[in-house]
Design a protein around this nucleic acid. Structure first.
Lengths: 231, 231
DNA sequence: CAGCATTCTTCGTTATAACAGATAACACAA
DNA sequence: TTGTGTTATCTGTTATAACGAAGAATGCTG
């Protein structure tokens, strides 16, 4: 008797204000729209998003629990500042996590996934030639997570996302070091090649060098910042 | 002029209700006091802890953001139920994370850390002989995190804690499989030996087998549960 | 001008009220 | 008995008010 109900599309449940607020905040952090160390007050977030304190607070503290934001001694939340030790630690963690994801992805990636990866790489090279900075960063994200998505491990991808989020606020500052590094793109070619060969070990190694290069750039940036701070 | 102020101990800032609630909840989850899949409503938590909705909500959703709890389609939060795929994924993640932590710990552990580790192992064996189940689980936690603490990598330890939290609700159910496994304790001896030799690779391998054994036990348990569910 | 106290503003925290959607219990008709 | 409509209760969501602590600004005193 449900024949007459065929063809009804499921009505989409509107996301809660708190969820949308968190997503908005996460995107902003990821895009590097906040200076490292910037303070985010509950009320300012609420005002900026046009919601009351409750959802703003939930969004903020959700990101704190994810590790994307930090909460100071008196409860004020702020964009994390990266110390050298922290970057080194993130390097180790990312190598472990993304290496595991890469190995799994090399086994399971489909032909469609490979095509998407190649397309990402092409767009990335185009953006690099154009010198389009923001686009390049976004495409770099897309490129890597196209790999990790192929691993079909949602928890793992979530954790990797958390790691990337922690360095998000430095994406704007990292460009002079990172953009001119042509070997970065050469390495991306190595990643694609290893993936096409479905060689998990080689893929993990290539990704490790990618992470190491990014970490090196980050270290240079924060060293420069520390020097500027001291001056 | 601050000479007269010498010896004053820092007055401890009272933790917020939300923090204490989250800690209470986390401990309960970790101790396996909730059945897998149990629903945790905001109001019931608030009532149980004697606080209002706001801190209870923050505690619940903080643990959700950490991955220790799950939130269903309609917003109800519940203890995560582990599928086989999820356990396999956690196995991979834990091997990557705890392997990295083990390698770092093998390099940096102090003599005091080694002593603590040996004490933990001794207590663990005693608890095993007594058949003290809860004590054994708590000591096992202590043993492993004594290792990871030696790595001096707070972010990494935090992530590992998150992984352990996800399996917390199964600690009560896992005993028949896990408790009688004497080779588990033999493996702990191997861990201590590798740590004493500061052999990172051997330590990582030993920890990997420990994780694999625990995963096997978990898989057996959830397979049994699935069969019971179908019956 | 420096140092200190005071006031005022801002902020985090918590409780509460009100609303909407979901779930369960129940009664009634086929 | 099974299916259905109704009601009552429960639950998540959000806004708001109020309280205390922290910080900034101001003014006063030396």
């Amino acid at each position: 008797m449900s024949g007459a109900l065929r063809g009804l599309s499921r009505v989409e449940r509107p996301a809660t204000l708190a969820d949308r607020a968190r997503e908005e905040l996460r995107a902003a952090v990821m895009a590097g729209q906040f200076e490292p160390g910037a303070k985010l007050t509950v009320r300012s977030v609420a005002r900026a998003l046009g919601v009351s304190l409750t959802p703003a607070r939930e969004a903020l503290y959700g990101l704190v629990s994810e590790g994307a934001l930090e909460t100071g001694a008196n409860g004020t939340t702020s964009i994390p500042v990266l110390t050298e030790a922290r970057v080194q630690e993130l390097l180790v963690i990312r190598c472990a996590l993304e290496g595991a994801a890469a190995r799994a992805a090399a086994e399971r990636i489909t032909e469609a996934g490979l095509a998407e990866l190649r397309a990402c790489d092409a767009a990335l090279q185009a953006a690099h030639r154009k010198g389009a900075f923001k686009e390049l960063m976004a495409l770099n994200w897309q490129f890597h997570f196209a790999i990790y998505a192929a691993a079909d491990m949602p928890l793992l991808v979530r954790m990797i996302e958390g790691c990337w989020l922690m360095t998000g606020s430095y994406l704007n500052v990292i460009y002079p070091e990172y953009g001119q590094a042509d070997h970065g793109l050469a390495n991306h070619a190595a990643i694609v090649a290893a993936m096409e060969a479905r060689d998990g070990d080689r893929l993990a190694a290539a990704i490790r060098t990618d992470i190491e290069m990014a970490s090196r750039a980050l270290l240079a940036v924060i060293a420069g910042r520390a020097a500027a701070e001291g001056a």
